[in-house]
């Protein structure tokens, strides 16, 4: 359960280019299943996801995760939460070029320093599961869009997080790959993962796999179903 109380986010506060990305947002997200944030560009979806995922802090208001207020945590605690609770799938995947597929998948686990053989086996198993068994040692820049996204999913799952955050994950994919992505997310949700994703693609927010829909406009909550 994620609760946001009177959350606002202002970028470049006090400067000529001040931007109110979120305005006094009150929201409760039931972490079960797949939750989709819907809204046009600039509606505040990405900002909301980054606040939920502890990638940034609100300008005002409180964010609670499983009843614990995390918005006032120090950077170190936020990193710890990020590391163990969230897995991120970014719009442009944000894989680290020049490295192999398996290295990219293992990166989030490096600071935890698990046994190398176990980590390697886990990463290999994930890549096998997502149909990338033959691409383990390929460099990520050689992959197709769909393959890159599946690598990003594997990377998000390597630390076994409870919540997957995906920001516009299908923005760079065609409809076939979008459908494939949704079925992968549905499979993860079935296995107990919570998925929070953002999209302005009807192929996503109208899909039957979506359990909860949150609609946003101009940094405010429009509706929640």
């Amino acid at each position: 359960m994620i609760t946001l109380s009177h959350v606002s986010k202002i970028y470049h506060q006090g400067q000529p280019n001040e931007l109110h990305a979120l305005r006094d947002l009150n929201l409760t997200i039931d972490a079960e299943g797949i939750t989709c944030l819907r809204g046009a560009s600039g509606s505040g979806k990405t900002t909301l996801l980054s606040l939920i995922g502890c990638l940034s802090r609100p300008t005002s208001g409180r964010i609670a995760l499983q009843g614990q207020i995390i918005s006032s945590f120090s950077e170190r605690f936020l990193t710890d939460i990020r590391r163990h609770t969230f897995g991120f799938i970014f719009q442009r995947f944000n894989l680290i070029s020049g490295l192999s597929v398996i290295d990219n998948v293992m990166i989030p686990a490096y600071p935890i320093a698990p046994d190398h053989d176990l980590l390697y086996a886990k990463a290999t198993e994930l890549l096998h599961h997502f149909g990338l068994a033959t691409r383990l040692h390929s460099r990520v820049e050689w992959l197709s869009g769909g393959e890159s996204q599946r690598v990003a999913i594997c990377r998000a799952l390597i630390n076994d997080p409870t919540i997957i955050i995906a920001d516009e994950p299908t923005a760079n994919l065609d409809s076939k790959l979008t459908a494939g992505f949704l079925s992968l997310m549905a499979e993860l949700a079935k296995n107990g993962k919570s998925i929070i994703l953002s999209s302005h693609d009807p192929g996503i927010y109208d899909a039957q796999e979506i359990n909860h829909l949150i609609e946003m406009r101009d940094g405010r909550l429009l509706s929640q179903t």
């Binding site: 995922g53 990638l55 590391r83 163990h84 600071p111």
Partner: peptide, 8 residues
């Protein structure tokens, strides 16, 4: 990216 995926 490293910070986002859990590096301190």
């Amino acid at each position: 990216i490293l910070k986002a995926v859990g590096w301190e």
